[in-house]
């Protein structure tokens, strides 16, 4: 579970990237975080994962405050950033092993999960190649594998579908469902509304650092009191703010 309470973040003294944000992301659900470019999605995610410090407010993951126990919180999170270009000069297997060591995964567990993840994503043949030689989608997959290797109770992704082929993104969606069904939290940002509509149990829409809507797709439809596409509702919602 992720709880954000009155979180604020300002850049360069005047640009408010996150404005009094309140959000609760429960266990066992896939939660979509929607918003136009520059709405504050990535900033919010960076605050939850400990990359950025919030100016004020509190962030709790599984009831633990990130300011008080940063390592404990980080250990329970698996984070897939929006660009997978990291550790390019390591081999895939070296990267996965590095992540497993970081998250304290036992040798037996990591072998089992590696095997499973590599087969599921079709990466078995390239594990001993350098990440540099991977395509964008493969890099994305190796990062996702590195995150799932410690079976995080909170799985956070920033635009995870970018660059994935249809099969891989289907597998990813499947895995998100399975992960949530085991009682874990799955939280991801996207601007692809179709994905959100099909996968998410609940969505929040953010624009200019503020939450405009938070609820199920059904509730959103009720909110607008008509049966329109999510796209239309989204555009209306974010446009009316301008």
């Amino acid at each position: 579970m992720i709880e954000l309470l009155n979180v604020n973040k300002t850049f360069n003294g005047n640009v408010k990237a996150v404005d009094s944000l309140n959000l609760v992301i429960p266990n066992g659900e896939i939660f979509g975080f929607l918003g136009p470019n520059g709405a504050g999605k990535t900033t919010t995610i960076k605050i939850i994962t400990g990359i950025l410090n919030a100016d004020s407010g509190s962030v709790k993951v599984n009831g633990i405050d990130i300011k008080e126990e940063p390592l404990e919180v980080k250990r329970s999170i698996g984070f897939v950033p929006d660009t997978p270009n990291m550790f390019l000069r390591l081999k895939g297997i070296e990267y996965l092993n590095f992540m497993a060591d970081m998250y304290d995964v036992s040798t037996a567990d990591r072998k089992e999960r590696l095997q499973y993840l590599a087969e599921r994503f079709g990466m078995t043949d390239v594990l001993y190649d350098r990440i540099q030689s991977y395509s964008h989608g493969m890099r994305q997959k190796i990062v996702i594998m590195g995150v799932l290797i410690h079976n995080p109770s909170v799985w956070i992704m920033d635009e995870p579908m970018t660059g994935l082929d249809p099969k891989s993104s289907f597998i990813l969606k499947e895995m998100m469902r399975e992960h949530a069904d085991k009682g874990n939290t799955v939280f991801f940002s996207t601007h692809v509304l179709d994905v959100a509509e099909k996968v998410c149990d609940r969505v929040a829409i953010i624009d200019k650092g503020r939450i405009l809507f938070n609820g199920t797709i059904e509730e959103m439809k009720e909110h607008f009191n008509r049966n329109e596409s999510l796209e239309k509702m989204f555009l209306e919602l974010t446009d009316s703010e301008k």
């Binding site: 297997i93 070296e94 996965l96 092993n97 590095f98 497993a100 060591d101 970081m102 304290d104 995964v105 036992s106 040798t107 990591r110 072998k111 590696l114 095997q115 590599a118 078995t124 043949d125 390239v126 594990l127 001993y128 190649d129 350098r130 540099q132 030689s133 991977y134």
Partner: peptide, 25 residues
């Protein structure tokens, strides 16, 4: 960058996956 893309079957993944200490890794 060149890559080999050779198949590492079920045994292959055993190589280099032992747990190590955080600082040394």
């Amino acid at each position: 960058t060149g890559s080999r893309r050779h198949g590492h079957g079920l045994q292959g993944i055993d190589k280099g996956v032992e747990k190590g200490s955080v600082i040394s890794t």
